[in-house]
Amino acid sequence: MKKAVLILSMAMLVTLSATGYYLYINNQNQNNFSSTTEGINSVEVSNAEKNKDGVEESETVNATLAPKVLYWGSTGQDVKDVQWKLAQWDYYNGAVDGIYGTETYRAVRAFQSKNGLGVDGVVGPETAAALGLNFGPVDGGTQGAGTTAISRNDDIYLLARAVHAEARGEPYIGKVAVAAVILNRVENPSFPNTIASVIYQPLAFTAVADGQINLSPDADSLKAARDAINGWDPTYGCRYYWNPATSTSKWIWSRQVVIKYGKHWFGN
């Protein structure tokens, strides 16, 4: 009798926990989703017109990402990027392991004092910019009528995040191709007219819907995004790509196939 009560209550508890967990997971998804919608809304203010020949024309200020800051104890790809850059310029000779420890701290301080930056051992937007990395906007100081806070970097960064989310593990040229497809969409009337609204168009990219877009891009993705923005287009103008192994849409198979890089087919 006692045992029966026990087993019964245990069973109920397990069921309920499972339900609770299920709801929690669902909730997480919703969270992801609503952050996507937020992204969509903020897109409306940005209407900077970009052309591919190096000179920019723009009318309004872009929506920007919040700046990132790295300090002692930080980990991840960004730290790796910083370490790699510092190692390249002989400030750092430890391992490029993505862990911000004593040696990285010393190297950052040395770099800052050599380059006339505030010596605090913290990598903020300004130090990052001096390193040639993009960690979000640098404070431009006072701005006259002629100067602006417009920069192409935030577009490159967003594009790189999309590339990283969609084409991690693809050969380098496949990454450039994915970035080129996004840019070809911007220039096509059947799609939205800014990089952000193409990337955040609902149901367009699975890696955007499931939140992978928020991962930090690696150096290769950033490079690929830059190459594509500078005009390289290995797809010869394609607007679609799909992975035959995972694609569930029948419609995508009716596209006109042009070329294959890595696992992705590209087409129109």
Partner: peptide, 14 residues
């Protein structure tokens, strides 16, 4: 690099 059937028709520069 493997190309698709429509390369000649739809690419900007086949």
């Amino acid at each position: 690099i493997e190309e698709g059937e429509q390369m000649d028709k739809t690419a900007w520069i086949p």
